[in-house]
Amino acid sequence: MRLVRRETPLKGGQVRAFAAGVVIALVLGAILLVSTGHNPAEVYAKMLDASLGSPRGWSATLTRAVPLGLAGLAVAVAGSMGLWNIGAEGQLIAGAIGAAWVARFGGDWNGFVLITAMLLGAVVGGALIALGPALARARLGVNEIITTLMLNEVAIRVVRYLVNGPWKDPEGNNFPVAPELPPQSALPGFFERANIGVLIAAAVIGAVGFYSARSAWGYELKIAGSSAKAAEYVGISLKAKILTVLVLSGAIAGLAGGIELTGSSTRLVEGVGGGFGFAGIIVAALALMRPSGVAAVAVAFGAVQIGGGAIQTLGVPASIAGILQALILFGALGAAVLTNYRVVVK
């Protein structure tokens, strides 16, 4: 038995692969649930109901899809040029730090001004932490996978340091938290539990997706991602492209951190990253690095996460959400192989 490459990939293969991944994940998850004494039908029904069964569920799912989608977009933008931004988690944290830093000065600012400034701070924070790996890659050819990965751990410790030290809330009962954000920094509501962060994220994903698919800039990225030598042949400056793309990628992930802080929390805490950056990589991979796919996969993952949180009332650990996400990816990766290859038995 061997794999033979198809001349043209199966039409709609990626959607099918994703669906196959979901089915595989649900089946394996069911085995796990049964073996630990749970009724999978009941658990899955509850997950579905909590995440997509009501406007309230949808609002929670979409809110959760915001950091997932933006982190996924950040990874996808870099990925369309063949670069791996594994640092979305750290950039997201840096974004939250940037936003929190701005908020320290804006206690008496008007809400709109403060939120705008905080989101800008988030974008700058994410871009800044991505700048190092970007420069190292563009100028010295240093592998960005490792540098961005390492900076995740650095960012996690920077925020830990801040909330345990200089930014520690004196009135926080000695908990490692920063002071509460000014009340006017909370993002205005959208519907039910969702805030306008959903709209901001949708607009950013849409705009970046449209621009990279249709613009000359996006086309140049695609050439560079397909072959660096072809890009040089056409006269595209690879160094400039690497730099702008990785910094843009960091800025987008930073924005996710800013929206997370202004929309879903009241203060900067250690766990602000929430693993969204890592999940975003899976989201981008499942979306084949296409921004259009990122939104859909992010909503699906948001539903899995919200559903996973809801089934704790049934005595099922919330960690089932992470398990299902990873299994979806493995299932889809396996299935995706079959969209590009045929199995030949001989």
């Binding site: 796990l32 791996w84 594994i86 990589i281 991979a285 089932i320 992470g322 990816l329 990766l333 192989v337």
Partner: peptide, 27 residues
């Protein structure tokens, strides 16, 4: 199996393994 036998991307597969391991061990 996923990255060597099937040839999927090693970065993605490895990260997914970490997510799976953290979730499964907690479970």
């Amino acid at each position: 199996i996923v990255s060597v036998v099937m040839g999927a991307d090693q970065v993605v597969s490895g990260l997914a393994l970490t997510i799976l391991g953290l979730g499964l061990s907690a479970f």
